[in-house]
Lab assay of single mutants.
Amino acid sequence: TYTWNTKEEAKQAFKELLKEKRVPSNASWEQAMKMIINDPRYSALAKLSEKKQAFNAYKVQTE
């Protein structure tokens, strides 16, 4: 089980997950979700809006 003390740690864990699963920077949210949804870190960020925000930040960083 994973635990995160801060929102920032949770966001980092979520981005690490995207990186580890090699989600391409041109992937849509739907494509990315299919690649990461079974990992416990997918739940790091509770709100869908937070997940999408972190995903978009990840995409910008990896382009």
Results as ranks from 00 to 15, higher is better:
Thr1Ser: 15
Thr1Lys: 15
Thr1Gly: 15
Thr1Val: 11
Thr1Asp: 15
Thr1Gln: 15
Tyr2Gln: 15
Tyr2Pro: 15
Tyr2Thr: 12
Tyr2Ser: 12
Tyr2Ile: 15
Tyr2Met: 15
Tyr2Leu: 15
Thr3Glu: 15
Thr3Lys: 08
Thr3Leu: 12
Thr3Ser: 08
Thr3Phe: 13
Thr3Asn: 09
Thr3Arg: 05
Thr3Pro: 15
Trp4Gln: 06
Trp4Val: 06
Trp4Ile: 05
Trp4Thr: 06
Trp4Tyr: 12
Asn5Cys: 15
Asn5Asp: 09
Asn5Leu: 14
Asn5Pro: 09
Asn5Lys: 12
Thr6Ser: 06
Thr6Pro: 02
Thr6Ile: 03
Thr6Gln: 03
Thr6Tyr: 03
Thr6Gly: 05
Thr6Leu: 04
Thr6Cys: 08
Lys7Trp: 06
Lys7Thr: 07
Lys7Leu: 12
Lys7Phe: 09
Lys7Cys: 10
Lys7Gln: 10
Lys7Gly: 06
Glu8Val: 06
Glu8Tyr: 08
Glu8Trp: 09
Glu8Thr: 06
Glu9Asp: 06
Glu9Leu: 04
Glu9Ser: 04
Glu9Met: 04
Glu9Pro: 01
Glu9Asn: 03
Ala10Ile: 02
Ala10Gln: 08
Ala10Asp: 03
Ala10Pro: 03
Ala10Val: 02
Ala10Met: 06
Lys11Leu: 15
Lys11Val: 14
Lys11Glu: 15
Lys11Phe: 15
Lys11Asn: 15
Lys11Tyr: 15
Lys11Arg: 13
Gln12Lys: 07
Gln12Asp: 13
Gln12Met: 07
Gln12Ala: 11
Gln12Ile: 08
Gln12Arg: 07
Ala13Leu: 07
Ala13Phe: 04
Ala13Tyr: 05
Ala13Asp: 05
Ala13Lys: 05
Phe14Asn: 00
Phe14Gln: 00
Phe14Ala: 00
Phe14Pro: 00
Phe14Arg: 00
Phe14Tyr: 02
Lys15Gly: 15
Lys15Leu: 15
Lys15Glu: 15
Lys15Tyr: 15
Lys15Trp: 15
Lys15Asp: 15
Lys15Arg: 14
Lys15Thr: 15
Lys15Val: 14
Glu16Tyr: 05
Glu16Gly: 10
Glu16Gln: 10
Glu16Asn: 10
Glu16Lys: 05
Glu16Arg: 05
Leu17Ile: 03
Leu17Gly: 01
Leu17Phe: 01
Leu17Ser: 03
Leu17Trp: 01
Leu18Glu: 00
Leu18Arg: 00
Leu18Phe: 03
Leu18Cys: 06
Leu18Thr: 00
Leu18Ala: 00
Leu18Val: 02
Lys19Cys: 14
Lys19Asp: 12
Lys19Asn: 11
Lys19Ala: 14
Lys19His: 14
Glu20Lys: 02
Glu20Val: 05
Glu20Thr: 06
Glu20Ser: 08
Glu20Pro: 00
Glu20Cys: 06
Lys21Phe: 08
Lys21Leu: 07
Lys21Arg: 09
Lys21Gln: 07
Lys21Met: 11
Lys21His: 07
Arg22Pro: 02
Arg22Glu: 09
Arg22Gly: 11
Arg22Cys: 12
Val23Cys: 04
Val23Gln: 00
Val23Ser: 01
Val23His: 01
Val23Tyr: 02
Val23Glu: 00
Pro24Thr: 04
Pro24Lys: 04
Pro24Glu: 04
Ser25Phe: 13
Ser25Gln: 13
Ser25Trp: 11
Ser25Gly: 14
Ser25Cys: 13
Asn26Arg: 07
Asn26Ala: 07
Asn26Trp: 13
Asn26Ser: 10
Ala27Thr: 12
Ala27Asn: 04
Ala27Trp: 09
Ala27Ile: 13
Ala27Leu: 08
Ala27His: 09
Ala27Cys: 11
Ser28Glu: 07
Ser28Phe: 04
Ser28Tyr: 04
Ser28Trp: 03
Ser28Ile: 11
Ser28Gly: 08
Trp29Gln: 00
Trp29Thr: 01
Trp29Tyr: 07
Trp29Pro: 01
Trp29Arg: 00
Trp29Asn: 00
Trp29Asp: 01
Glu30Trp: 08
Glu30Ala: 11
Glu30Ser: 11
Glu30Leu: 08
Glu30Gln: 10
Glu30Tyr: 08
Gln31Leu: 13
Gln31Asp: 08
Gln31Ser: 08
Gln31Trp: 06
Gln31Asn: 09
Gln31Phe: 10
Gln31Arg: 08
Gln31Ile: 12
Gln31Tyr: 10
Gln31Cys: 11
Gln31His: 08
Ala32Met: 02
Ala32Asp: 00
Ala32Lys: 00
Met33His: 08
Met33Glu: 10
Met33Cys: 13
Met33Ala: 10
Met33Pro: 00
Met33Tyr: 09
Lys34Cys: 13
Lys34Gly: 11
Lys34Asp: 10
Lys34Ala: 08
Lys34Phe: 10
Lys34Leu: 13
Lys34Pro: 12
Met35Val: 05
Met35Asn: 04
Met35Ile: 10
Met35Tyr: 08
Met35Thr: 06
Ile36Met: 04
Ile36Thr: 05
Ile36Leu: 05
Ile36Phe: 02
Ile36Gly: 01
Ile36Pro: 00
Ile36Trp: 01
Ile37Pro: 01
Ile37Cys: 13
Ile37Met: 12
Ile37Glu: 12
Ile37His: 12
Asn38Pro: 06
Asn38Glu: 10
Asn38His: 11
Asn38Leu: 11
Asn38Tyr: 11
Asn38Ser: 09
Asn38Gln: 09
Asn38Met: 11
Asp39Arg: 00
Asp39Phe: 01
Asp39Val: 00
Asp39Trp: 00
Asp39Cys: 02
Asp39Met: 01
Asp39Gln: 00
Asp39Pro: 00
Asp39Tyr: 01
Pro40Gly: 06
Pro40Ser: 05
Pro40Asp: 07
Pro40Met: 08
Pro40Val: 12
Pro40Cys: 10
Pro40Lys: 05
Arg41Glu: 01
Arg41Asp: 01
Arg41Ala: 03
Arg41Asn: 02
Arg41Ser: 02
Arg41Tyr: 01
Arg41Ile: 03
Arg41Met: 03
Arg41Gln: 02
Tyr42Arg: 00
Tyr42Ala: 04
Tyr42Cys: 02
Tyr42Asp: 01
Tyr42Met: 02
Tyr42Gly: 02
Tyr42His: 02
Ser43Gln: 14
Ser43His: 13
Ser43Gly: 13
Ser43Thr: 10
Ser43Leu: 14
Ser43Val: 09
Ser43Cys: 14
Ala44Cys: 05
Ala44Gly: 04
Leu45Tyr: 04
Leu45Met: 05
Leu45Pro: 02
Leu45Gly: 00
Leu45Phe: 05
Leu45Trp: 01
Leu45Ile: 10
Leu45Gln: 01
Ala46Gly: 10
Ala46Met: 08
Ala46Ser: 14
Ala46Ile: 08
Ala46Cys: 10
Ala46Trp: 10
Ala46Glu: 14
Lys47Tyr: 07
Lys47Phe: 09
Lys47Ile: 10
Lys47Pro: 06
Lys47Asp: 13
Lys47Ala: 12
Lys47Gln: 12
Leu48Pro: 06
Leu48Val: 13
Leu48Phe: 05
Leu48Lys: 11
Leu48His: 05
Ser49Cys: 11
Ser49Val: 10
Ser49Asp: 14
Ser49Gln: 08
Ser49Gly: 07
Ser49Met: 12
Ser49Arg: 10
Ser49His: 12
Ser49Lys: 08
Glu50Trp: 05
Glu50Gln: 07
Glu50Asp: 09
Glu50Gly: 03
Glu50Arg: 02
Lys51Phe: 04
Lys51Tyr: 03
Lys51Met: 06
Lys51Leu: 06
Lys51Asp: 02
Lys51Asn: 02
Lys51Cys: 05
Lys52Val: 12
Lys52Thr: 05
Lys52Gln: 09
Lys52Met: 11
Lys52Ser: 03
Gln53Val: 08
Gln53Ala: 13
Gln53Tyr: 09
Gln53Gly: 07
Ala54Val: 08
Ala54Phe: 05
Ala54Gly: 03
Ala54Arg: 02
Ala54Cys: 12
Ala54Met: 07
Ala54Gln: 06
Ala54Trp: 10
Phe55Val: 03
Phe55Arg: 01
Phe55Gln: 02
Phe55Ser: 01
Phe55Lys: 02
Phe55Tyr: 06
Phe55Gly: 01
Phe55Thr: 04
Phe55Met: 04
Phe55Asp: 04
Asn56Lys: 11
Asn56Trp: 15
Asn56Asp: 13
Asn56Val: 09
Asn56Ile: 11
Asn56Leu: 13
Asn56Ala: 12
Asn56Thr: 09
Asn56Met: 11
Ala57Pro: 02
Ala57Glu: 15
Ala57Trp: 12
Ala57Leu: 11
Ala57Arg: 10
Tyr58Trp: 10
Tyr58His: 07
Tyr58Phe: 08
Tyr58Gln: 03
Tyr58Arg: 01
Tyr58Thr: 03
Tyr58Ser: 03
Tyr58Leu: 04
Lys59Met: 07
Lys59Trp: 05
Lys59Asn: 04
Lys59Arg: 09
Lys59Pro: 03
Lys59Tyr: 05
Lys59Ala: 09
Lys59Ser: 06
Val60Ser: 12
Val60Thr: 13
Val60Leu: 10
Val60Pro: 04
Val60Arg: 13
Val60Ile: 13
Val60Cys: 15
Gln61Leu: 12
Gln61Ala: 12
Gln61Cys: 14
Gln61His: 07
Gln61Asp: 13
Gln61Lys: 07
Thr62Phe: 14
Thr62Asn: 11
Thr62Pro: 10
Glu63Ser: 13
Glu63Thr: 11
Glu63Ile: 14
Glu63His: 12
Glu63Met: 09
Glu63Gln: 12
Glu63Tyr: 05
